[in-house]
């Protein structure tokens, strides 16, 4: 554990808190991509299978929080707030993301065991799971400020893992190329968003695409 990893995990928790807070206070899930949320649940369920055979207080608690909160968000989106979700603007073709992640996971896992292949699948899928959400923002051309805070916090989480990996490599020669490559891709996908978030939202203007 180091400060970058801890900060990354805190940003992840903050992003979930912002999302649930936004939905429950506005009683609406408008602007939130159901497809991205469903992909995140798939990511957590396939990555955290090791909950069944490994236990570490910090990691196991966080894993349960991520799976539980993700399922709760999907429950809100399919139950109480379903009327506020507009499937017509949430049209990204997620089958290509799932298919691509599955192919990469089958070709290059660290070991060909079901758990390792699913873990690798989750790493690749997470790197692109935000695309339906970004696509939705792009389609509508604007986003509520609270939604932009959510996307920022979620992006900051994996971005902060990058200095964590550099730190771990320098201090203990920890090296996990799969996580690192996927994490860098994930951060790059956010970079446009980060730029607009920084130049607009943080200066008190509305998030609108140029």
């Amino acid at each position: 554990m180091n400060i970058f990893r801890l900060a990354g995990d805190l940003f992840h928790l903050i992003s979930i808190f912002i999302l649930i807070h936004k939905m429950t206070t506005s009683k609406s899930c408008s602007g939130i991509s159901f497809k991205s949320q469903a992909l995140y649940l798939l990511v957590y369920v396939t990555r955290y299978l090791d909950l069944f055979w490994t236990f570490a207080l910090y990691n196991s608690t966080m894993k349960i929080i991520f799976i539980g909160s993700s399922a709760y968000v999907l429950h809100l989106m399919t139950g109480p707030f379903k009327p506020t979700h507009d499937p017509n603007i949430d049209t990204f073709k997620v089958r290509y993301l799932i298919g691509g992640a599955a192919i990469l996971a089958l070709l290059f896992p660290y070991k060909w065991t079901p758990a390792e292949v699913l873990w690798t699948f989750s790493i690749w899928l997470e790197s692109v799971a935000i695309l339906p959400q970004l696509f939705m923002v792009q389609r509508t051309g604007a986003a509520e400020t609270i939604t932009t805070h959510y996307i920022f916090a979620l992006g900051a989480y994996r971005a902060l893992y990058i200095p964590n990996w550099i730190y771990r490599y320098l201090t203990s020669t920890f090296w996990d190329p799969l996580s690192i490559i996927a994490g860098v891709i994930q951060t790059v996908l956010y970079s446009d968003f980060f730029y607009i978030y920084y130049t607009k939202v943080l200066q008190g203007r509305k998030f609108e695409l140029p």
Binding site: A56, Y110, W175, S179
Partner: peptide, 10 residues
């Protein structure tokens, strides 16, 4: 330590 790679992260 490929076996342990990434498994102690989230």
């Amino acid at each position: 330590v490929v076996e342990e790679a990434g498994k102690d992260e989230l």
